[in-house]
Each structure stands twice: as structure tokens, then as C-alpha cells.
């Protein structure tokens, strides 16, 4: 079974993204920072399941989103990673792309746009 992993320090954002993606039928996993996400992804893979997509925030305590992408990409080159953040500076976006992000959405997002982007990335 393939999960969508939502990584954000804000419970409000995690719930909003989960709400937007409800209709897609993917099981949702949550993490509150990059390091928490790496552990949970390892546990999912350890059970023989997989991750279809990670949606990750940038500004989080413990491990930020850009660092997470770099770590995640060390042993997973293909699973799409979508950044969801308030950050819109070109420099940050470039850093995300270089770390291995597949896309970048600046908050606030519309539920329809989120669904479209996710469908395109998991295809």
C-alpha cells in the first residue's frame, strides 16, 4: 500500500492537506518535522509498504524541509516530494529544487490545485 506522507509542524496545515486529499483514497501518514518523517517513512517501508508522495513544509523545528529532502534523496531518487510553504524567495525555491524537490506550492493553496498537482506527481 502506498501512503502520502504530510510533513508540517502545524497540525492545522497537516489536517488541511489531509482534508484536501481525502477524495484520492490514499492512506495518509503525518510527521511534524523532517527527522520524524524519516523515521516514519523507514517504518512504512519496513512493513513492506511504500510512500507515493511526500508533501513537506520548509520551516520546521528539529529538521527543516530542505534538509529532509536531501536526506530522503540519499536512498530514494524517484518518489516525488512536493514542498508546501509560505516561502516564495527564488533562492529558497532553487535550494529546494537542487535538494531534489519535484514541485513547490506557496501557501495558501486551493484544494482543487492541490489535488491536481498531487495527481500529476503520483502518476
Amino acid at each position: 500500500m502506498k501512503h502520502i506522507m504530510i510533513i508540517d509542524d502545524s497540525p492545522t496545515i497537516r489536517t488541511s492537506v489531509e482534508y484536501a486529499l481525502m477524495g484520492l483514497g490514499y492512506p495518509i501518514a503525518n510527521a511534524e518535522n523532517g527527522s520524524d518523517a524519516l523515521k516514519k517513512i523507514a517504518a512504512i517501508k519496513g512493513k513492506g509498504d511504500d510512500v507515493a508522495l511526500c508533501i513537506v513544509d520548509v520551516n520546521m523545528p528539529v529538521m527543516d524541509g530542505i534538509t529532509f529532502i536531501g536526506e530522503f534523496r540519499k536512498d530514494d531518487k524517484f518518489t516525488p516530494v512536493l514542498v508546501l510553504t509560505t516561502e516564495s524567495e527564488e533562492q529558497k525555491i532553487r535550494a529546494g529544487k537542487e535538494a531534489g524537490a519535484s514541485g513547490w506550492i506557496v501557501k495558501p493553496f486551493s484544494n482543487q490545485d492541490m489535488v491536481k498537482v498531487v495527481q500529476r506527481l503520483v502518476k
Binding site: D9, T12, S16, N59, M60, P61, P108
Partner: peptide, 28 residues
């Protein structure tokens, strides 16, 4: 607020502030 389109603007405004707090080293 999760299902509300207007609330999305408020959540984004709060995200800007919380993001600045995190950049200063704060945790929720």
C-alpha cells in the same frame, strides 16, 4: 477552519508568523 476558504488566508498569515518563530529557533 479546515473546510473554509476564507480561513485559508488566516492560516497562511499565521504560517508566516510561525515560520519566523521557527527561524529564530522556537518550537511550537
Amino acid at each position: 477552519i479546515i473546510a473554509d476558504d476564507i480561513a485559508k488566508q488566516g492560516i497562511a498569515s499565521m504560517e508566516h508568523l510561525m515560520g519566523e518563530m521557527v527561524k529564530q529557533g522556537s518550537s511550537r
